[in-house]
């Protein structure tokens, strides 16, 4: 029984079958990596979890509740946060404001006018946001405009925004892409620490095998829209099918 269960998911774009009978179980408290060559359908799969795409057939359940047919903000309220492949941040706002927004957002998403409150008086929110920035080692950049950050920093900012929400399930689409080696290692440490401390379940798409094998407890390999193997990292390392998929031997 996983916290996230994906059953027989199919998704086509016109004639292109992006996902074919995909099954996936993410166990609670685990870091589950989804790997596969470019165009394998990894991001498409995540899109089906957060309400960005609707699978043609199949089911996606989170904590026993179907995630299909409900809107993105409702999925997030159920406890699913996502870091996107191309950072989805508030580019015109400062780094600190970016993190303050999820801090302001009530977990149940309820509307609060707050028009008479003042941002600079919200010390609790500000402190929480500053702390999130410390966690992703971006504290000194809090006054910068998000637009002007490097690609790696944008992604770390997005991570801080998601973590500020205390999600139950964190979906990460290539969290270390565009990062320098040192930052990648820092991110590995950060994610490992979060998982130890807060027991957040994570599904992580990653091309960098160093990241995958440092973090993942379980790995699913996706190739051409199907899961070709799912196993522990050790078993995956020696798997011939995986080698083949990555060496471009598929067709």
């Amino acid at each position: 029984m996983g916290i996230l269960e994906v059953r027989n998911v199919n998704k086509s774009f016109g004639g292109l079958k992006a996902l074919h009978e995909v099954n996936l179980d993410v166990q609670e408290g685990m870091i589950h990596a989804i790997i596969g060559p470019n165009g394998a359908g990894k991001s498409t799969l995540l899109n089906c979890f957060v309400g960005k795409l609707e699978p043609d057939t199949g089911t996606v359940t989170f904590n026993g509740r179907s995630l299909l047919g409900i809107r993105p903000h409702e999925i997030n309220q159920a406890g699913v946060s996502r870091v996107f492949q191309t950072p989805e941040i508030f580019r015109d706002l400062t780094v600190l404001e970016n993190v303050m927004i999820p801090c302001f957002a009530k977990r149940d998403g309820s509307f609060e006018l707050n028009a008479l409150r003042r941002i600079h008086n919200e010390t609790d929110i500000r402190e929480k946001a500053e702390q999130m920035l410390v966690d992703v080692t971006m504290a000194e950049k809090h006054d910068m405009q998000a637009e002007s950050l490097s690609r790696g920093d944008k992604r770390r900012l997005e991570m801080a925004m998601c973590l500020a929400q205390d999600p139950q399930l964190l979906l990460l689409d290539e969290p270390t892409a565009g990062m320098a080696r040192a930052d990648t290692n820092a991110t590995i440490d950060l994610l490992g620490e979060i998982q130890d401390k807060r027991k957040i379940t994570m599904a992580i798409i990653e091309h960098d095998m160093h990241v995958v094998f440092s973090l993942a407890e379980r790995i699913s390999v996706l190739a051409q829209g199907t899961v070709i193997v799912e196993d522990t990292p050790d078993k995956i390392k020696g798997n011939a099918k995986v080698q083949e998929a990555y060496l471009g031997g598929t067709h």
Partner: peptide, 28 residues
């Protein structure tokens, strides 16, 4: 001025900047 400086104003600026992200942050 008060609206511009309030959390509500910040939400409105966020809508202009990236409405999708707000949705993925659980806000309608």
């Amino acid at each position: 001025i008060r609206i511009f400086r309030s959390p509500f104003g910040l939400m409105l600026k966020a809508i202009k900047s990236n409405q999708q992200r707000l949705n993925y942050t659980g806000l309608n």
